[in-house]
Computed example of a mutant assay.
Amino acid sequence: MVINDAILNRKGARKSSDIPNEVLMYLHDGQLESVNLIEWQAVNHQSLLKSILPSLDLEENMAFFLSEMEKQNVVSGMKAIRVVSELLDNVLKNESDEKRLEVLTIMSTHISDSVRCWAAFMNKGTSKTIEELLSYIQPFAADHHFGVREIAWMSVRENLSEDIEKSVQLLIKWASSSDENVRRFAVESIRPRGVWTKHIDLLKQDPEKALPILNLLKADPSKYVQDSVGNWLNDASKSQPQWVLDLCSKWENESDVQATSKIIKKATRTIKKQTINK
Rank of each mutant, 00 (worst) to 15 (best):
V75Q: 13
N231M: 07
L170K: 06
E22Q: 13
Q46M: 12
K166W: 10
N9F: 02
I111R: 02
K71R: 11
D57Y: 13
V115R: 03
G77D: 05
C248Q: 09
T260R: 02
S239G: 08
I106F: 08
L24E: 09
E60W: 09
K128N: 14
E162R: 14
T129H: 07
T268Q: 11
N215V: 06
V35F: 04
A219K: 15
A142W: 04
W232Y: 10
S261K: 15
I164V: 13
I151M: 12
T129K: 12
S55W: 08
L53P: 05
M78I: 12
W232P: 02
H145S: 07
K223P: 15
K265G: 02
A259F: 08
K204F: 04
E70V: 04
P212V: 09
S76W: 08
N253F: 10
N94D: 14
S127L: 13
K166F: 12
Y26F: 11
Y136F: 11
R14M: 15
L171W: 01
D89T: 11
S237Q: 03
D97N: 10
L87A: 06
L27Y: 03
M1P: 15
H110R: 01
V84K: 12
I111K: 04
S114P: 00
L58K: 08
E254Q: 14
S237W: 04
N123Q: 10
D143W: 00
K272N: 14
M1F: 10
I3G: 03
E150C: 00
M107K: 07
V156I: 09
M69D: 00
K15H: 14
K204R: 13
E132R: 01
L66Q: 06
S255M: 14
K209N: 11
S17T: 15
V75W: 14
I137A: 00
C117F: 06
P192K: 02
N94S: 13
P192A: 05
V103L: 04
A141W: 00
M122D: 05
S222Y: 08
R184T: 06
E70C: 06
S222M: 05
D256T: 10
L58G: 06
L171S: 07
E68I: 00
E39W: 03
K71P: 03
P221Y: 02
D5H: 10
G194P: 10
R193N: 07
L53Y: 05
E22F: 03
S135E: 15
E180W: 12
H45T: 09
K262N: 14
A120Q: 04
E252I: 11
L202P: 11
S76T: 13
E60C: 09
A80N: 05
R82Q: 15
L202V: 15
L53S: 08
G30H: 01
S237H: 03
K71C: 02
Q31R: 12
E39G: 05
I276V: 13
V182L: 08
K15T: 14
M154R: 12
S108E: 01
I271D: 03
K218R: 15
S47T: 14
D201M: 13
